[in-house]
Nucleic acid binder design. Structure first.
Lengths: 344, 344
DNA sequence: TTGAAAGCGTTACCAC
DNA sequence: GTGGTAACGCTTTCAA
């Protein structure tokens, strides 16, 4: 059979295939090099104005769009910052933070890509991420170990930043100190004279990364005092909350740290429905300082967490990319502080 | 100066560059082709077990990870579904929907990429998206016109699906019928005997796409009746809400459709703070049927919106990718219905 | 000022 | 069974 090297004359009315720079060159009557020069505004080479125009018109007419993969393959690097989508429905706080971060990275000329990892987790997922050859990877939550970091770095990632509670070897870290969130909450309740303190632990899987250190923080705050801590598993669901509220008086608690503001709202409502007076009978404190806490009655006390601005984190990434040899930066995210309102 | 073609012996302790399949082949003592066969489990070719093993061990040792860009460049297509991050802080409803969709697409073996477009909007942005050569693009909100769709299709996107309120030429569409959301709310309030109806219109920019049709829907519901509609601009902010509440009695309204549950909560609280009785004095209804509405007192009436499941949308995408010639599917998202609780 | 050609990492088609 | 080789789309030296 004869192999036809190229379809002789593809009817111009049906441009089935995606136009390439070669097509543009052909139409403009120049070489592919010239097309590249014109479309990238290469300063080192001067192209005559008429040629320039012909190329631009040809590109326009064909609807030519450069192929990012081919470009970065040739260049040997990309400016893609990969942010795996958290496997856990993260809170509203994280959502806002992410938006801000995306904007800031965009302004530094990075392309932000959020990758929804369907299957594998942790170090498994790192291999998938590495296939995309990002220049930097920002990993929320925990789950990535030193092995995963190594995989990413070996495949060209110049910066790996974890946003989880603990530092990972080889990676920069924004260390969310959830333990101190719990500590602040526990100390606050203790100072207000509470001694039998409940701590809500969400039943939703994946949230343990945050809830465990928060619980530990409360424990540490009350360690060596006459106060006791009771763990309260709770699903994010009206029924679960109602069931917990139903046995509230048997629990004999005088305060509760409700993991975050959303769980606090859920629990507070359930308690009010069974006539537990807040804060007289039971004090309630949440965390994250969401708007909704201010709208509740009584107004919800909360632990405000000072996340770094998206700009700060974007600059950390940029710094790390520019200087990949530098030792990992570890930024403890401080600034957890109690906002005392009416519920405690 | 003499150009050295290849560094003679890069010290194996410092593998500075990213390992390629050629490196694996070299280490295993086979050709690149064989490496490809082994690592991709190519059925058509049988590779001897010892060779197989050698290749796998070499890949393991080098920490080889295939280069997705090179692969899809060679293959001529990718399985990337691009979802631009909405320029607007979308609500919690959309967030959950997106999570579900990501999972469903992942299960169909697509790679979901959320692209945070920093700068340009609409058809401008389409060019940037097209550079990534996605097999499908899912555009939330409006802003993409027929030109943008054409750009995407010409650069190889086999499916473009818009999630906005109106159909776009050439694109499949999940038509969020926000007009009928407003219509349902308006009709409900009218049926409850309300005649002077306020409609909250968020001041946050970008939300007009949703708020305008919702307002129009209320207007249509009350058209030709003795009821009147008052537009109420409101920023998502306690102060704005307080200012609006302060002049509430001057407005003389007996009902309000608060755009969505979050704005409803904000406004309801502000009204209660100035002793406007709900629902006696003013009925309040929101939209989106968020959990928080059930937790408010009085319980918040709302318009529940039946979004298609992530699985449904994933299947629409898959169908469209498999059969790009098919005419655009237009799915009106129906199922807006009032959930009557206590606030109206 | 423009063109020819090499090469980025991968895979598929043919020979051996 | 295994190994060359070409090609995907792009940029960039080098040469004309």
């Amino acid at each position: 059979m004869v192999q036809i090297p190229k379809p002789a004359a593809p009817p111009p009315s049906v441009p089935r295939s995606v136009p390439t720079s070669a097509d543009v060159a052909r139409l403009a009557g120049v070489s592919r090099a010239t097309v590249s020069y014109v479309l990238n505004n290469t300063r080192a080479v001067r192209i005559s104005e008429p040629t320039r125009r012909r190329v631009q018109e040809a590109a326009e007419e064909l609807g030519y769009v450069p192929h990012a993969a081919a470009r970065s393959l040739r260049a040997g690097h990309s400016r893609t910052v990969l942010i795996p989508a958290p496997s856990v429905p993260a809170g509203a706080l994280y959502g806002r933070f992410l938006d801000e971060l995306q904007g800031a990275l965009g302004r530094l000329d990075y392309t932000v890509v959020q990758h929804g990892t369907a299957g594998p987790h942790g170090d498994e997922a790192a291999r998938v991420w590495a296939e995309l050859r990002p220049v930097a990877v920002l990993v929320p939550g925990s789950g990535l170990g030193p092995r995963g970091v190594a995989v990413l770095k070996r495949s060209g990632a110049r910066a790996v930043v974890t946003l989880g509670p603990e530092a990972v070897e080889g990676a920069h870290g924004l260390l969310m100190d959830h333990e101190s969130v719990g500590h602040r909450a526990g100390a606050h309740l203790y100072d207000r004279g509470r001694r039998r303190i409940g701590v809500v632990v969400p039943e939703e899987s994946g949230l343990e990364v945050f809830s465990r250190p928060r619980l530990a923080g409360v424990r540490r705050a009350l360690d060596g005092t006459d106060a006791g801590v009771t763990e309260l598993p709770l699903g994010y669901d009206e029924d679960c909350a109602a069931r917990l509220a139903a046995r509230w008086r048997d629990l004999g608690l005088d305060a509760v740290f409700a993991y975050n503001d959303e769980y606090a709202m859920l629990l507070m409502r359930a308690l009010q429905d069974v006539d537990v007076r807040i804060p007289e009978e039971t004090a309630v404190i949440g965390a994250d300082d969401l708007m909704l806490g201010r709208l509740l009655r009584p107004r919800l006390s909360t632990v405000h967490i000072d996340l770094p601005s998206g700009r700060d984190l974007a600059e950390l990434v940029d710094r790390a990319v520019r200087n990949p040899g530098a030792p990992p930066e570890r930024h403890p995210v401080l600034g957890a502080r109690v906002v005392h309102r009416e519920s405690s």
